[in-house]
Design a protein around this nucleic acid. Sequence first.
DNA 1: TAGCTTTCCCTAATACAATTAGGCAAACCA
DNA 2: TGGTTTGCCTAATTGTATTAGGGAAAGCTA
Lengths: 189, 189
Amino acid sequence: MARGSITAERLTRAAAEVADEIGFEHVTGSAVARRLGVKDPSLYTHIANARELKVRVALLALEEMADRAAAALAGRAGKDALVAFADAYRGYAKEHPGRYAAARFELDAKTAAASAAPRHTEMIRALLRGYGLPEPDQTDAVRFLGGAFHGYVSLEMAGGFRHTPRDADASWAWMLDTLDLALKGRSGK
Amino acid sequence: MARGSITAERLTRAAAEVADEIGFEHVTGSAVARRLGVKDPSLYTHIANARELKVRVALLALEEMADRAAAALAGRAGKDALVAFADAYRGYAKEHPGRYAAARFELDAKTAAASAAPRHTEMIRALLRGYGLPEPDQTDAVRFLGGAFHGYVSLEMAGGFRHTPRDADASWAWMLDTLDLALKGRSGK
DNA sequence: TAGCTTTCCCTAATACAATTAGGCAAACCA
DNA sequence: TGGTTTGCCTAATTGTATTAGGGAAAGCTA
């Protein structure tokens, strides 16, 4: 291939596309090389190893999600903010299932700290401001919300809800209502 | 190796052990064969392929978790049941992280239906009885709780809480309190 | 219990993914 | 333009997944 046809960014983007198509767990360096029309060993001029490719997709996903969530959050507060944030999250997962899975890839502490992950936490903290929770309740609530959003989306994507007729959107809305009420209840205590 | 030294069950158990030791995503047929002191091709007399091994570990994990949860639930109701169930779940994940991850392995619909997964749903439904939720709220609540438990445990195991000093057990307890209150609020409506 | 059949673990071999070594031409630089 | 660097390639190695086929042990039969 032509010199300069590969860059770490191009590799990352291609890997993200492959992930969305065949699932993050099936992403392989070879598949990415094939998609870009280059030979496998050529990858190693740009990335250290196959793991780095996955890490880069994870970082990309975390950043894209954070950007979407930030946009969704802008100018909103209270339940409005809660719903907008949660929907941004879930919407991203539906649009980019492979990248969403990538965002759960285990990063070492240093990489995680330098990623967009802390922004996610900060945004949840921001949307919680409307509920007036004191510490340490606020931290507990951050973990609770993060877990609830991720857990729901994760079960939904795994097909866990297909056995029951009830619409997944309706259950999602019910959950957000419930979370809103629960947080209001917690703040008034 | 001696004839009869391999069975599908033995393979599954060994794979589960490997999973807990090095992580479910790193389980390989070769590693399991090595652990049992047999050659790789010998596996294929007992399982169709490497995926089947993972499926079997997933089924084992789902069953073990269901058994634990059932024992925890016995004789309890209301918040007591909620906490016991959730703790059983989280306890299993901490004791057997590889198997816990395996339980999230995507099964095809038929296999999932024949697994212990429906028991999990049924148990959540059972513990919700104490809250008197009408349908479809009950279904929504099942999804909510399943998601919240899994999401929290999943984030905790991924190390997502290590950055903040707040104790993960305390946040867990806070979440269970909040869930209890939220469900009570929902039933009284 | 000799002989027959089946079972099952092994060796040999293939394919694909990850990775390293080293070559060679294109691009850059003086 | 000649020298250096850069970056993609071919060749080769290792590890995992899998198929083919052999041979001996276990079990059945008479």
